[in-house]
Amino acid sequence: TTFEIRVGDLRITLHNADEEEIRWAEEALRRGIHADEILRTLEERRR
């Protein structure tokens, strides 16, 4: 599944994310964390 998060002009697309990952990514985007860093962190958490 694919889920797109939008916060203002910012956007990130997550693939195969669970609800916790989606909530975490949305909050991180709101705090101004760059999408590349969010994706990198999620990848590390999945390992």
Rank of each mutant, 00 (worst) to 15 (best):
T2E: 15
E20M: 10
H34F: 13
R46T: 05
I22Y: 06
R31S: 14
R40W: 06
E4S: 00
T1V: 10
I33C: 09
L42K: 01
T2V: 14
E4F: 01
R47K: 12
L39D: 02
A17E: 02
I33F: 09
R45E: 06
W24M: 08
A35F: 04
G8I: 01
L10R: 10
R30I: 11
E19F: 10
A25P: 00
R46N: 07
I5W: 00
R47V: 12
H34D: 13
I38Y: 01
R11Q: 12
W24T: 03
E43K: 06
R23Q: 13
T41E: 12
I12M: 07
L14C: 05
E43D: 14
A17G: 03
G8S: 01
H15T: 12
T13S: 04
A35C: 03
L39E: 05
F3S: 15
I22Q: 04
D18S: 14
I5M: 03
E4R: 00
E4M: 00
I12H: 01
E26S: 09
R11V: 15
R23H: 11
E19M: 13
I38W: 01
D9E: 10
T2D: 15
R31G: 13
I5C: 14
G8L: 01
R11G: 06
G8N: 02
R47M: 10
W24G: 01
T2G: 15
E19Y: 10
T13G: 02
F3R: 15
L42M: 08
E27D: 13
L29S: 02
H34I: 11
T41V: 12
W24V: 04
I5A: 02
L10T: 13
A28E: 10
R6V: 15
F3N: 15
I5R: 00
E26C: 07
T13L: 05
L29G: 03
R46Q: 08
F3D: 15
H34V: 13
A35I: 05
I33D: 09
L42G: 01
E19A: 12
I38G: 00
A35P: 14
A17P: 14
E21H: 04
I33A: 07
I33P: 01
T13R: 03
V7G: 01
I5N: 01
A28F: 06
G8Y: 01
R45F: 07
R6D: 15
R31Q: 13
L14M: 04
G32N: 07
E19H: 12
I38D: 00
A25S: 04
R45N: 11
L39W: 07
T1W: 04
E21C: 13
W24Y: 13
L42V: 13
D36Y: 09
E27R: 08
E26Y: 11
T2F: 14
E26K: 10
L42F: 06
I12S: 00
I22N: 01
E37V: 12
E37H: 08
R30V: 11
R45G: 09
D9H: 06
R40F: 06
R23T: 09
A25N: 00
E21N: 03
H34C: 10
T41N: 08
R23E: 10
R31H: 13
W24R: 02
H34T: 14
G32A: 04
R11M: 14
I33W: 09
D9Q: 04
R6W: 15
E44Q: 09
R47T: 13
E37F: 08
T13M: 03
R47N: 13
R6M: 15
E19I: 13
L29C: 06
L14G: 01
R40C: 13
D9T: 05
T13E: 05
G8E: 04
R45P: 02
I12D: 01
H34Y: 10
R30W: 07
R45D: 05
R47P: 08
E27H: 10
A25M: 03
F3K: 15
A25W: 05
T1D: 15
G32R: 04
E43V: 07
R6P: 08
A28T: 05
L39Q: 05
E20Q: 11
L29E: 01
L39S: 03
